Amino acid sequence: MGELLVRYIEQGKGPKYGVPINIAFLDKKDIEAAGKTIEEAVIAVAKAVGGPVGINVFDMEAVTTTSDGVMVEGAIVAMAAGDIGTVHKEFGLLYMEEMPVTPDLIKEEPHLLQWETYYKGRKFFRGPNPAKKLIPVHNVVMTGRAVNNNSATEMMNAVTMEEILLPILGQLQIMRDEAVVFGLTGEVISVGIGMTVAEKFGRVFPSRQFKAGDTAHGSGEYAKTLKANIPCIVAPKKVLAKYILQALKAGMIPGLHLGCSPAVLAVAKAYGSPVAVDNITEKARVELKSVGIDIGRFKVADEPMSEEEIMERADDIIPGVEDPVLVDSEEIVTKLKLYV
Rank of each mutant, 00 (worst) to 15 (best):
K299W: 10
P100E: 14
I23Q: 13
Y118A: 06
Y118T: 06
E3G: 01
F125A: 02
V239Q: 05
I318R: 08
A270D: 04
K269V: 00
V264L: 00
A268K: 08
L258S: 10
L112P: 03
L326R: 13
G50I: 08
V267D: 02
F205W: 13
H217L: 15
Q171N: 10
G85S: 07
R126D: 00
I193Y: 07
I280T: 09
S306A: 02
I23T: 09
D294P: 01
A263R: 01
V137A: 09
A198C: 06
E97M: 03
V300E: 15
V204N: 07
E73R: 14
L226S: 13
T64Y: 07
I21W: 06
M175K: 05
P130V: 10
A78E: 04
E178N: 15
K36A: 13
R208V: 07
A81Q: 03
R126V: 11
V191L: 04
P15E: 03
I317N: 04
A78L: 04
L113I: 14
L166G: 00
G127P: 07
D104P: 00
C232R: 07
A235Q: 13
H217W: 15
A270F: 07
E187I: 03
V267I: 13
K283H: 14
R285L: 01
T143H: 02
D302I: 06
S290N: 11
T160Q: 09
A158T: 00
T65D: 13
P319F: 05
A81S: 14
A179Q: 11
F210T: 14
E97D: 10
A241E: 10
L93K: 01
